[in-house]
């Protein structure tokens, strides 16, 4: 719970830009949900888990570069809605879906995550280190989740993956509804 006490999108004092970049996706709840969902999706597939994790990592890199170039999204609503869609797919057993869909699905997820990870008010050098830290954090975190899911062999573990996805779905559904209602 103490994780959530740290203000999101604000640099943490006394640590440098690189470590701020590492911590950033882990401290922003919407980004953490995105990473978990990407990992659940990749790990749930019967094959090519590493490839699908790399696709998400590559997409996140593209999104981070776009954010460095000044591309912004006004609200995290598109990211939350997309996470919602992917989480529903995982809860509904995404391994039954066509391969090209589950292969391409992480692309918008990573790009939106990267764009939403804007670091403002930094020098060019600081920005590069922040983005690098952020990319490493996103990549390793999602990959570890995917590996964990991939290791699931017992029936109850497969169910646990779907339960986790249904929890993410419920969270995103309510947050998206609130964002929509506040418009």
């Amino acid at each position: 719970m103490c994780l959530f006490a740290v203000p999101a999108h604000l640099p943490i004092e006394n640590i440098n830009e690189f470590y701020n970049g590492i911590l950033h996706p882990l401290l922003v709840p919407a980004h953490l949900l995105t990473i978990i969902t990407a990992g659940l999706l990749a790990g749930q597939q019967p094959s090519h888990t590493l490839l699908r994790s790399r696709i998400f990592m590559g997409a996140a890199a593209v999104g981070l570069i776009l954010s460095a170039l000044g591309v912004r999204i006004a609200t995290p609503l598109p990211l939350i809605v997309y996470v919602l869609v992917i989480a529903i797919a995982v809860a509904a057993r995404s391994e039954r879906f066509p391969v090209f869909i589950v292969t391409l699905a992480p692309v918008p997820l990573g790009i939106l995550l990267g764009i939403d990870s804007a670091f403002d008010g930094l020098t060019t050098k600081g920005l590069v280190w922040s983005l690098l830290g952020c990319l490493l954090s996103v990549s390793f975190s999602s990959f570890y989740v995917a590996l964990l899911v991939k290791k699931a062999s017992r029936p109850w573990q497969h169910i646990a993956v779907r339960v986790a996805a249904s929890w993410v779905t419920a969270i995103c559904l309510m947050v998206a509804a609130l964002q929509f209602a506040q418009r």
């Binding site: 809860a91 339960v163 249904s166």
Partner: peptide, 9 residues
């Protein structure tokens, strides 16, 4: 447990 949280949401 899969369906209940989503319907509740």
């Amino acid at each position: 447990p899969v369906v209940f949280p989503m319907v509740m949401a």
